[in-house]
Write a protein that binds this DNA or RNA. Structure first.
Lengths: 354, 354
DNA sequence: TTGTAGGCGTTATCAG
DNA sequence: CTGATAACGCCTACAA
């Protein structure tokens, strides 16, 4: 009888006793089960599985065989309890109802799983208080937190960032890693395009007053307009939705503007719908430009010209940055920027003569 | 000095020693810290926090004050390790890129957090193997698993369901809790509407061959057509996307059908775009009806008539059912149905004479 | 009512 | 290279 035969026999013999039933009555193998089956110490099992190389080939094989045999799965909780690392990233978005965030979620989810981490999702319903609660709830469970368009104050964010790595999307917070679309390129492309089509008066529809992004966009638009010799005017929206855009159609028509840029695509689409309902041709009478290039922006007639925010990329970048932070990569700090670009479609163009 | 004063003094005195630094150098209070600060035993802290009533009012107040003082958060892992319950639900969607699942995610997320649970998100990229891997990865961490439009085989799903509660959305699996939109009502409304507008020939565009839902929808359409005396014809799509819809425009025109129902809105929208590009008026020459009522279905011109799937409700129902299962509610089994309904918009109507 | 002690599954440390 | 042991934070009999 060879050594292998001995081992095989031992395996077989131990197997019956090796399966434990947890409280739900299901079989869940632990490293103890493996240890018993393989005839080694539990700590050796742990080593064999986690740092092969610090264990003899023979032992490793034995342990691996037993692990497969028992369909072993590590218990992440037990591991986390000791190591403090959970293999989990938290993502909190401001509004899960807003299609803008879906690309962020996608981006984050993809890179998270591709790096063998797990993503936990929560939402703040646009409330700073809810957001902070969600964050606090998540903290013990995650290795780091990604905040997409957070509504809480800078100081709260920094406090969180002191406890665990935090990456912010769509906003810049001093002292915290951030990922933001760089609005400048897209905006200047858009304004240049409008100027080239002879527009002289532009209306900007702002987003929520507390939105960092909205402020940046208006600044960018104002600056680009100045540069191009276009007069710009800012309108406040009630809410950054299709309905909010609709409500502004009347004021905008009255303003004498021949081109409109909206804080986001939803506003732009609502505006366009209402304009068309009122018989105002787009872009013949009024050019409309949105922001973000959300899903469905090209479903409209005419399809919406918009400045694309690489939201998916932002989600992905944030996750990458997060994992760098978690794994102590030294260079991981400061703000990451992702380019925006003009997507020229049918809703903007030359003013029809007359 | 009153007793309160004594306590206050004691609190203050102990506080300095009470904060522990974990390995990351951050402060994280444990029940030990609270115990020290409140001057009681850790087990008493646990009781005071979890089962107030089994502890004196005085002790409870003391402990609660200390907990607030230290900004204590339970460590879900430690709790889970002992109790086997993680307070976490897993959700796996077939394709995070597909807007159809947005609403499922929203529904599940909302009810999950409102019940003080946490949601973990993963995606299978339409692959049965990836799906199973994701599920296995999640199992140890979650109290239950929600599968939205799963691609893996029935047997795999049942195996998972034997280990922990599983709820399936958009598909029916024998022996597993399911939540499905009931297509019948919406379909019969749609077909009746088309029949009332004089349509006699209908084309159905099918979805992925392996999709349970696609099969159900085609069955439903076929039956309703028969009942209404409409001839129905089924077309295969390459992929259930806008592009997939575009590719079918030619064949559908050639088929002589005057009305089209698509497996989903994406196909319907693509078809409509291509028809219009080819100068075929919708609905004057061809009526188009979609399925699901995804975000953006009303952005098109004409806005898309569609059969709304209550996907958000399905997500929510699945989460509720899941929590019932997790908490051992006895009646929680069998299939839950959510009604579909026709959303009549501009893309369907009477055929233009001539 | 409160304290004591043991254990959940894993990993790290220290002997051997 | 491998084994024993302690610890992570919490909960729950059981004892006081």
């Amino acid at each position: 009888m060879t050594a292998e035969h001995h081992e095989a026999a031992a395996l077989q013999h131990n197997q019956a006793a090796a399966l434990q039933h947890n409280q739900a009555g299901k079989v869940t193998a632990t490293i103890y089960d493996i240890a018993r089956l393989a005839g080694v110490n539990p700590s050796t099992v742990s080593r064999a599985l986690n740092k092969p190389g610090r264990v003899s080939t023979r032992t490793r094989k034995l342990v691996e065989a037993a692990a497969v045999e028992l369909n072993y799965q590590v218990n992440p909780m037990a591991r986390a309890l000791l190591t403090g690392r959970t293999g989990t990233l938290g993502l909190i978005v401001a509004d899960i109802t807003n299609p803008t965030f879906f690309n962020v979620i996608r981006g984050a989810e993809s890179t998270t799983v591709s790096r063998h981490y797990t993503l936990i999702l929560a939402e703040s319903s646009e409330s700073a208080a809810t957001e902070l609660t969600a964050a606090r709830r998540m903290m013990p469970t995650v290795d780091g937190l990604i905040l997409a368009s957070p509504r809480m104050g800078d100081e709260d964010i920094r406090t969180l960032a002191r406890e665990k790595p935090v990456v912010v999307i769509n906003r810049e917070v001093e002292g915290v890693s951030c990922v933001t679309p760089d609005v400048e390129k897209g905006i200047s492309q858009a304004i240049r395009s409008l100027a080239a089509n002879g527009h002289k008066n532009l209306a900007f529809i702002a987003g929520p007053p507390q939105s960092w992004m909205s402020a940046r966009r208006w600044e960018g638009v104002k600056a680009a307009c100045e540069w191009s010799g276009i007069r710009s005017l800012c309108f406040e929206s009630n809410e950054p939705t299709v309905e909010g855009g609709r409500l502004l159609a009347r004021d905008i028509r009255a303003s004498g503007a021949t081109a409109v840029m909206a804080y986001n695509d939803l506003l732009a689409i609502g505006l366009m719908q209402e304009l068309q309902a009122a018989g105002v041709a787009v872009p013949d009478r009024l050019s409309v430009v949105g922001f973000d290039d959300i899903f469905g922006a090209d479903f409209t007639t005419p399809p919406l010209t918009t400045i694309r925010s690489p939201l998916r990329e932002c989600g992905a970048l944030a996750a990458v940055r997060m994992l760098d932070l978690v794994n102590g990569v030294p260079e991981a700090s400061g703000t990451l920027r992702a380019e925006t670009e003009l997507i020229l479609r049918g809703s903007s163009g030359r003013l029809l003569a007359g």
